[in-house]
Design a protein around this nucleic acid. Structure first.
Lengths: 339, 339
DNA sequence: GCGGGGAACTTAACCGGGAAAGTGATCAGC
DNA sequence: GCTGATCACTTTCCCGGTTAAGTTCCCCGC
């Protein structure tokens, strides 16, 4: 019932608590026989050193923080965060680091959380998601000196370490694929415009379309929810000179878009081709299954966690590139029907 | 850069650190003028007390733990956990408690995590998900004396506090609704059979079907993934005397089932009606939109968190009932087509 | 037989707070 | 004018580890 302390172990072993500390941490200063005896006693009474006491001397909390700044409803439907977290976790728990999670309302709250965590020494570092254009968290983290790895970029990460994926290249690949199929009117339903990766994708989209000579390459901003995806799709598909292909910034909006197209009596992929960013099992459950840009999100998370641990360990704040998303063609894309 | 301590505040205020401690904690022992001066200085230099030092004296970690024991891919697609977490978080962060998350491989690992967390005083209590039949975590938690709230039941929670929802009643309501529509051959695609709530639902299903005189009320076990949902559906719909209605234990399997039915040329809801457990925006994105059993998962999580904080505070280990899921009829259910 | 050098410990200081006990000074009451 | 209470602090100890600085004791060499 009562949690044993190092003093309990010492008493039972008939040694001082210093000796127990040496024994448990594999340091010289105790004989092998004594060490084994101490370890056996510690295991027997279920002793594990108090993290608080340890971090009070040692200065590390053995925990990293992650804040999520999205409304509850979009957090739930998007597999991205949960997959990211499970990847982060895999890496952290292998080194017995804990993950402290906090859902915040806005960036101001997030910055406050960072300050508190660091002041309280609750975490040794943080992972930063949903990087924004001119993100106010970046200068704060730099000022605090709180070890951090930004999941996102490239660019906009200041002097902080980051792990990024080349969304621009993935988008170019997608547009070129649709172009090769014969599409000339391609539209895009984007994510939240304030997010940096949305801007990166939008810019890449505009650039590649101009290069290919596609005039009206429009991006309709949305917010990753099905409702917004549906509304944007309705707008696009009811316009004069409607697109023959639509790229969506996440799977939920793509599925909503597919529904809207079918509702409007448009054949997919005959009259409209659909591509989803973020491949997920859902993309394969609908009819037709969605062509999607997928990548290994848990690995991305693990990569970020690994880098954060390195930065905490004193490594320089590198900007590391993770794998680029690759296109998996499925039934939702085809050459546009002539007409 | 360097994190200030209480001694820094004391030095700048020209008082002892004891005085600073009283001032910050709102205790008597300092004059109001001094208190204000100390608070101003603390705010100015960005001081927040070290959690480690505080919990070393005070014994509370101001953190609760949550372990998730599902493979990464099913964690991602199911909105349940993320919604639960956001609800838990809302309650915890209001009382500035932190949430420590750990993804584990199996129950043995989970038990080890509990032992470590408690021994390390990393958490003040834990939330237990995915309660199993004869769950081995329950006796361990009781033995450790680690405050815990089980999210699940009723039953199987030993002497631990719990928050539960009446799945049996919700299932009965669903079957009666389908019966009233005229369905006489109703099947169910269940979740993992090892989970207690699956067993509760299965038993309730069997009982209500017997009561209504529905002979072949079969439950096909599955694992919440789309693939298994599709496989189970294929099996059910290709059998002789195929069901005219199928109830799925989660939304992903229901969507997969809908796809399979449409693939097999069966009209939904004309030839097969479909009901999903766990309503989510996805259910409204497919065609036809799915009739679903929904409830407020974030509120469920908040409820559990609130109870855990109460138990940590010394409240008795009650078993509290949360709201029952309610049926939202949509386009996927209708009277069976005569034939 | 005695000093030197380790090995195997013990002791004690420290980390950063909380809180009980102690210290002056002021003030009220008799 | 003395006692006692109260205020506003300061001092000191404690939490449970880590670790630098001793302290024994034993072995070895000369």
């Amino acid at each position: 019932m009562k949690r044993p302390t190092i003093a309990d172990v010492a008493r039972r072993a008939g040694v001082s608590k210093g000796a127990v500390s040496y024994a448990l941490n594999g340091q010289p200063g105790v004989s092998e026989i004594t060490r084994q005896r101490i370890l056996a006693i510690a295991a027997e009474i279920g002793f594990s050193p108090s993290r608080a006491a340890r971090s009070l001397s040692g200065a590390t909390a053995d925990a990293v923080g992650l804040t999520l700044c999205r409304p509850a409803r979009t957090l739930g439907i998007e597999p991205f965060f949960m997959e990211l977290i499970s990847g982060v976790e895999a890496e952290l728990s292998a080194r017995s680091y804990a993950l402290t999670l906090q859902v915040v309302a806005d960036q101001a709250a997030e910055v406050a959380v960072y300050r508190r965590w660091w002041g309280e020494r609750r975490v040794d570092g943080v992972l930063v998601c949903d990087l924004r254009v001119d993100d106010r968290r970046v200068p704060v983290l730099e000022e605090l000196g709180l070890p951090a790895v930004v999941i996102g970029g490239p660019g906009g990460t200041g002097g902080l370490a980051s792990v990024w994926s080349d969304d621009a290249a993935a988008l170019v690949e997608t547009v070129e694929y649709l172009f090769a199929l014969g599409h000339r009117r391609i539209a895009r339903v984007g994510g939240l415009p304030a997010l940096l990766h949305t801007e990166i994708r939008t810019e890449a989209f505009t650039r590649v379309c101009r290069r290919l000579g596609l005039a009206d390459a429009v991006t309709v901003p949305a917010d990753y929810t099905g409702e917004e995806g549906a509304r944007a799709t309705r707008r696009l598909l009811s316009s004069a000179g409607r697109p023959t292909a639509v790229i969506y910034d996440n799977d939920v909006m793509a599925i909503a878009g597919l529904s809207v197209a079918q509702e409007m009596g448009l054949a997919v992929p005959g009259e409209v081709s659909i591509v989803a960013w973020d491949d997920s099992p859902l993309c394969q459950l609908v009819h037709p299954p969605l062509t999607a840009l997928g990548r290994d999100i848990p690995a991305y998370g693990a990569h970020a966690a690994r880098q954060l641990l390195a930065v905490i360990g004193g490594a320089p704040a590198d900007r590391v590139q993770d794998g680029t998303a690759h296109l998996t063609p499925r039934g939702s894309t085809a050459p546009p029907r002539a007409g």
